[in-house]
Computed example of a mutant assay.
Amino acid sequence: MADFTLKEKESFTVLGIGTELKSDYTDYAGINKEKADFWQAVKQDGRLDALKAIATNDYIFVVNEAVNNKMMHYAGVMTEESLPEASRVIQFPKGEYLVVKGEAETSEELSNMLTGIAFGQILPEAENFAYVGGPNAAVEMGQRNGLVFGEMWIPVVKK
């Protein structure tokens, strides 16, 4: 099984700019294309830079959340401020989180890799904890040795 830890986290909020993913949840290629197109757009039109400018730290959050039966995907940051283009304040609950660490050549590769490991390997094999919904995030924390590094944070409950 992949390397992971369980960590207690305080509740926190992330200000996000989002998009609805319209592909079927089993269509990984379609979902990944929608996510890639979204990230390219928020980088090019300056919305990601606007978020970064008001962030309380250097972390970039790649958030997935079901909202009103829609699969939503957000670019977000931790901040106390607001932006007109921001579409949601995302509440992450206090509690236990599955934390998976990794590094990759790009932000997109990091997010896809961490999501795949967490949802494809760790959670299906976990015997003493489970994901029961709520927002989850791949957190880009910085760069070192030419690679992007970060963690996947998924709220879990003990079984």
Results as ranks from 00 to 15, higher is better:
27 D>L: 05
83 L>C: 08
61 F>T: 11
152 M>Y: 12
125 E>F: 12
92 F>D: 04
14 V>D: 00
71 M>V: 07
104 A>H: 08
148 V>E: 14
137 A>I: 12
82 S>D: 13
13 T>V: 13
25 Y>L: 10
104 A>L: 05
41 A>F: 13
59 Y>V: 08
126 A>G: 11
99 V>S: 01
99 V>C: 05
10 E>C: 09
21 L>Q: 02
36 A>H: 07
135 P>A: 13
100 V>P: 02
122 I>K: 02
36 A>F: 07
154 I>V: 15
11 S>N: 05
116 G>Y: 13
72 M>K: 04
122 I>C: 00
77 V>P: 08
13 T>N: 14
2 A>L: 03
159 K>Q: 10
98 L>Q: 02
24 D>A: 15
151 E>V: 15
132 V>T: 14
52 K>M: 12
127 E>A: 07
107 S>P: 09
18 G>T: 00
73 H>P: 08
106 T>P: 06
42 V>C: 05
113 M>I: 12
80 E>G: 06
137 A>L: 13
131 Y>N: 14
118 A>D: 01
31 I>M: 04
101 K>T: 02
91 Q>F: 00
123 L>T: 09
117 I>V: 12
32 N>S: 13
25 Y>W: 12
141 M>I: 09
31 I>R: 05
33 K>G: 00
17 I>F: 11
14 V>F: 03
90 I>P: 04
102 G>S: 02
11 S>H: 04
24 D>L: 10
16 G>C: 03
64 N>W: 11
149 F>S: 03
151 E>K: 15
40 Q>P: 07
126 A>D: 12
49 D>Y: 01
92 F>Q: 07
55 A>W: 04
44 Q>E: 14
75 A>V: 07
61 F>A: 09
98 L>N: 03
42 V>T: 10
148 V>M: 14
95 G>Q: 04
14 V>H: 03
70 K>W: 06
20 E>C: 02
69 N>R: 13
1 M>R: 06
144 R>Y: 06
60 I>M: 11
72 M>P: 04
69 N>I: 13
152 M>V: 06
156 V>K: 06
145 N>M: 10
48 L>C: 03
62 V>N: 15
12 F>K: 07
10 E>Q: 13
119 F>H: 10
143 Q>V: 08
99 V>Y: 01
72 M>I: 02
96 E>Q: 08
71 M>I: 01
126 A>M: 12
10 E>P: 13
106 T>E: 08
76 G>L: 05
151 E>P: 11
24 D>Y: 12
151 E>Y: 10
4 F>M: 05
135 P>K: 08
42 V>F: 05
76 G>D: 06
70 K>V: 06
155 P>S: 14
33 K>T: 13
28 Y>M: 15
149 F>L: 08
68 N>E: 15
110 L>T: 02
128 N>L: 12
153 W>M: 13
36 A>Y: 08
143 Q>P: 07
94 K>N: 01
105 E>T: 06
159 K>N: 14
129 F>K: 12
132 V>W: 10
12 F>T: 05
121 Q>C: 03
1 M>N: 08
145 N>V: 12
111 S>A: 14
